[in-house]
Amino acid sequence: MTVALFLIFGATALASALLSVTRKNPVASAMWLVLMFFGLAGNYVLLEAYFVAAVQILVYAGAIMVLFLFVIMLLDLRREQLESEPQPRLPFFGVAAAVLFIAVAAIALLDAVDAGVFPDAAARSTLELDGSAKAIGESLFGTWVLAFEVTGFLLLGAILGAVILTKRRLT
């Protein structure tokens, strides 16, 4: 049952990612990406990362997508401008890069499976994991508290950078 759900959510995520990348209209692209975020959130729930699943919906499908849609509508691209997207100068190399990446990754994955890198199902069937907000919070504000503080500065820098970049006159 879990595996079937994983496959359904995974197929949804993969298909909507492909549709999102191939749409001409950025609004349609963003909408398909929302579906991909939901598919991945479903997989996070199946992997018992409940807090991450909730944050995925809130931050990605909520905040980041709203920001994207806001900017897309702000730009107000004409229809003919969207329809006449020029072909990339070297489309072959883009596809070749993706295909080669898939090939190398598949070989590495199969090699890792053969070498027994992934823990055996029987050996890991007793492992417990608490993916609740409490467990994440204890780790975040315990072991990783320094990294957490640094992300505060990162966000501050991003805010300042975004404001300065979009200012009309820098005086």
């Binding site: 993969l14 990612a17 492909l18 999102s20 990348v21 749409r23 950025p26 692209s29 994207f68 900017v71 897309i72 730009l75 969207l82 997207e85 020029p86 072909q87 990339p88 489309p91 190399f93 883009g94 596809v95 890069a97 993706a98 990446f101 898939i102 990754a105």
Partner: peptide, 15 residues
């Protein structure tokens, strides 16, 4: 790989 395809093959900066 899908994301890589999008970055490499699309010219619309939003996508």
């Amino acid at each position: 790989a899908v994301g890589l395809l999008g970055v490499a093959c699309r010219r619309n900066i939003l996508i």
